[in-house]
Design a protein around this nucleic acid. Structure first.
Lengths: 187, 187
DNA sequence: TGACTGATTCGATGCCTGTCGAAATGAGCC
DNA sequence: GGCTCATTTCGACAGGCATCGAATCAGTCA
């Protein structure tokens, strides 16, 4: 019953640019590396990487390492859906696993500690969503305990706190903190 | 065999915003008027109108007049497509008729003459695409003939010429004009 | 016809996105 | 370890888009 219109919109958003459709079609039957695609499409490698990242995040492209290259191919099965079903919410979640999330977590959380707080918003959100799981639902935390918990992970505790409040994954009132039940970024 | 990635991307673009998905779902089973939708979604009527226009242009919503209201409903049949087919180009054109195009043409072309050249780019493009059909494919036109043909439709011939060249629906070289085979806005 | 009401358009504002060059990263190889 | 090449990230810029209030338009009813 999770409507989650934003997630569905994100799927369509990934498909809403001609260059990305073109990319998908190019890797539909055979694998191709990033700069091969860049050459085929007359785009800068950076731009292709950008588009591939969006397709990957939507779960529409799979990637494997092969020597110096990284080979991409379309995840055709993920697209075998009826449009109307997706719009109405009858189709299964289009992104079963989230490779982007994994990449971000691996990149910034090393040995259980946060190396840097990402500046890019999407990545920061991933990190904050992950870190807030350190708090239990339905419990109230005094600021000192919040600081202790976050301090295990990252030195600049106050920034983390502020960012979590800003994102809404953590709530504060009268110096007491808690983790709200509903994720504010959902539907 | 027409790739026409831009048109396919446009379909996805129409679906790529949560508000538009929400609108589609609201009018999936029952009709609703614009300001009813605005109230339901807590958006300004202007914003809803904007989103409805995009959905309509993509052929996803049908509208009929009823008393003081204009009632909208989802064109569910237009969405009964397989995502992979649309991406690969195997699905039939998602927008069989184009109500937006019709509206623009009716608004600006009266009695076979152009009343005003629209300032809004999307509308101007519609008009220019329509007017360029006055020229045959594979023929070369001296400037005088171009002026004569366009003059039948609109007084400011030089602006029309310039805009068509700019859009790429008309080509010029050494004072000779012709209509290129491929629509530059396709593919 | 005139007036009313809902819908659309216009104009402004702020955010988001596509694009690229340059710099940083990372994976293989010696 | 260092070298090389592909890829990604960063920073910047331009163009596009969502949103709204105000002004305009259009259709209906009296």
């Amino acid at each position: 019953m999770s409507a989650d219109l934003t997630a569905r919109a994100a799927l369509f958003r990934a498909l809403s640019h001609p260059a990305r459709l073109s990319l998908l079609r190019l890797v539909w039957t055979r694998e191709a590396s990033g700069d091969e695609l860049a050459r085929l499409m007359n785009l800068a490698p950076a731009t292709v990487s950008h588009h591939l990242a969006q397709l990957t995040e939507a779960g529409l492209i799979l990637t494997r390492q092969d020597g110096h290259h990284r080979l991409h191919r379309a995840h055709a099965a993920a697209l075998d859906l009826n449009l109307a079903d997706v719009v109405r919410g009858a189709a299964p979640a289009p992104t079963p696993d989230d490779p982007y999330r994994d990449r971000v977590l691996r990149a910034f959380l090393k040995g259980g500690r946060l190396t840097t707080l990402p500046a890019q918003r999407k990545k920061k959100d991933v990190i904050l969503h992950e870190l807030v799981t350190l708090f239990e639902h339905g419990r109230h935390y005094p600021e000192a305990e919040v600081n202790a918990i976050l301090g295990e992970v990252y030195a600049d505790v106050s920034t983390l706190r502020r960012e979590m409040i800003g994102l809404g994954v953590l709530k504060r009132e009268r110096g007491v903190y808690w983790r709200p039940e509903a994720d504010p970024t959902d539907s």
